[in-house]
Design a binder for these strands. Structure first.
Length: 106
DNA sequence: ACACTGACCATAA
DNA sequence: ATTATGGCCAGTG
């Protein structure tokens, strides 16, 4: 059941994101083979909290570096605080120097 | 079994 | 430049 679903693949990639680094839905989706499946990546993360996995979903943002999923963290600034806690600066839920913190699964 | 939705991205008009 | 639509896969009603 590890590589059985799209979700699990996403989990393994996201869990490999090192501290202070971020990645995007598109990159993950593209890494999985279908950049059009970026939606599923977000879904996987949404289910990840149901799976109680150690998924640093706060390190996953959209193509613009915007914390699109911050509203799913339950709080208003939970995601933002987590990122800043790792040294990632954000303005209005957008990551500054995204490419500087950007991490690629390869 | 069918239809709609979902933390997106790219292209077309 | 903005808005609309298609596409991808899976889950839920």
């Amino acid at each position: 059941m590890a590589d059985k679903n799209f979700f699990d693949r996403v989990y393994q990639v996201v869990k490999q994101i090192p501290y202070g680094k971020v990645t995007t839905y598109g990159i993950i989706a593209e890494f999985l083979g279908s950049k059009r499946s970026a939606r599923m990546v977000g879904w996987a993360l949404n289910n990840s909290k149901y799976n109680l996995k150690n998924i640093p979903a706060h390190r996953v943002v959209n193509r613009q570096g915007i914390l699109t999923g911050k509203r799913h963290f339950g709080g208003n600034s939970t995601m933002k605080e987590l990122l800043e806690s790792e040294g990632i600066k954000t303005i209005d839920d957008k990551i500054i120097d995204l490419e500087k913190h950007l991490w690629h699964p390869l």
